[in-house]
Design a protein around this nucleic acid. Sequence first.
DNA 1: CACAGTTCCGTGTGCGCACACGTAAAAATA
DNA 2: TATTTTTACGTGTGCGCACACGGAACTGTG
Lengths: 355, 355
Amino acid sequence: MITIKEIAKLANVSPGTVDRVIHNRDGVSEKTADRIKVILKEHNFKVNRIAQSLAMKKKYTIAVLLPHYDEEDSFWKAPLEGIEKAKEEVRSFGVVVETFSFDQKNSSSYIKSFEQLLKTKPQGVVLVPTFKQETRRLTNILLQENIPFVFLNIALSGYGNLSFIGQDSFKSGYLSGKLMQLCLNEGDDILTIHSRSNLSNFNNISQRTKGFDCYFKENGLKNTNHYIEIEDFWDTKKVKVSIEMALKSIPKIRGIFVPNSRSYIIADHINDYRDKVPFLIGFDLTEHNAQALVDDRITFLISQKPFQQGYRAINSLSKFLLYSTPPATEILSSIEIVTKENIPDYRQKEHAIFL
Amino acid sequence: MITIKEIAKLANVSPGTVDRVIHNRDGVSEKTADRIKVILKEHNFKVNRIAQSLAMKKKYTIAVLLPHYDEEDSFWKAPLEGIEKAKEEVRSFGVVVETFSFDQKNSSSYIKSFEQLLKTKPQGVVLVPTFKQETRRLTNILLQENIPFVFLNIALSGYGNLSFIGQDSFKSGYLSGKLMQLCLNEGDDILTIHSRSNLSNFNNISQRTKGFDCYFKENGLKNTNHYIEIEDFWDTKKVKVSIEMALKSIPKIRGIFVPNSRSYIIADHINDYRDKVPFLIGFDLTEHNAQALVDDRITFLISQKPFQQGYRAINSLSKFLLYSTPPATEILSSIEIVTKENIPDYRQKEHAIFL
DNA sequence: CACAGTTCCGTGTGCGCACACGTAAAAATA
DNA sequence: TATTTTTACGTGTGCGCACACGGAACTGTG
């Protein structure tokens, strides 16, 4: 590990001059700059990030705005944990992370939390752009203030975000289609269950559905896909009635597709029909879903590594602030197929990184 | 982020004393130590790892010994890349990583490379314990010299290793069984193809096979599993003859299970039988296998995150050397199901961590 | 030639911490 | 009480780098 000081000695200059060359600051004659550059390359010099961080006294604040989670819909727990993990790690680098949350069903809480967020004077923002119109307003403010921001989980385009961290929803739906087909026989039908109350996450859900249908179309399969829409998944009675109605009127249904993160609720309600409808594919490895998977009430879950997504949002934004290295415009996490047999061990809190 | 100096001021002592308390060094009266401890807790003090690394001038060397890879069997490419990635990151922390490789089929090259490795006077070793007996000799040396070491990819027990980084081979085989069952109908048979030349990796392979069989047994399935053993996968003619013989004599075979990383070779040879034997399950996402997957010649690949495994081997050992935090005795990576539809994007070089 | 302006580069300090060293004060011993 | 030993703590330096400051050497101008 060669140091600036050593390079300086080799080039017969002072460490300060080498530093100037490394950072392309002016004040160095072309001749000596070239000479130093050669030596730097020769010795494969890389700045010691550790020392660099210590020396750069600049502090950064990253503010995060995401939906809060509860017992019933704990999807946002994992991203938050990833964010907390990253928060600890970047602390030593002089990056402070402030988290704000809002109600997914309430756009004004989105706005309000954002206003709180702005008060921290962040140098970077992580946003889950749940509401399209409101997001336009918020991002306009950020653009005006020259605050870089990334989108997490929901991919909106044309908003000037630095990056999107999430999944390819269409592809994950497409994959679900394949898995469903693998389960079914030729004459079997499918039931897709939507939730009206999930408008906020409409983007991902609809892309998943499209991908799912696309798989069957592209492969010339003739299994019919029936749709029902349930207003509110929490209304136990309505859910049960709706499902029973569908299953009774269409006895060919053998598989159920739930393109949101609450397939466990559906699983709860088809216990009586398990023999007739043995296959259920859902999304996201929340605790409830995991339990249903273990209990054989869900066949497949498609997961998107939410912990990593949270972690990477902070990580990539920090890198950008600290070293001006812009992240990829799309950071897509792998689409994981989770079954009862390969469900990850929860005791191992994802993989810890460093520090 | 409160600093030692600030804590010192609050406690009316010098930074040196605070440092002593933090590291449980003696030379501090119990009274003042307690006082300082209270203040540390109150302010939730955490050492700044960055500054700590810079101040600790101790240098560590980690030596790695793994099989080399070639065009045909590139399995070990990914772990090496993970190691290289980690190597870059830990460099700033004063950890140097030296890599050595050996021939999987030649135990004396294993020994020889190890001897080379020892010359670097490593403070930690990453080992792929390919040969049992020889490994005993090597680990005895390491134990004697008090050099901590971890096993990568192959789980041997009772050798005094600090940790094992790899997969649960039995579980991954078990999962393969489930996937196979999902593909097959009741009366279908299975062909499992072993490779004699893979003795070195015998542990993983046999565990996978056991897990595979176990799935069928546990679930009371009656699909017969036929075994053939091919001496050398590279002997194209023999491979073809062996497979054809099996498929012709047992027409009920509809699925093939290849418990090693070279299923693509098998895939190459069953083109003529694709209609009759549509399902092939193999292991490890090497480039060749990935290509076969994309071309629909392989149905499922079970992958084990080899990049992450390499990364974590270095990572956990570094943590141990730097901060004396011992890693989990088993670091098992998730068992990934890879299909044509969710094959990861190779352009995105796994996920970069920090620095 | 004197002067100011510019170009180019060296010096010094501090980031937060670890640790060696030094030194008062307290305790033990003579 | 004088002296040694031990205890308890303060001080100083350096890790590798960024950056502010200052100054020497050079250039141009009257």
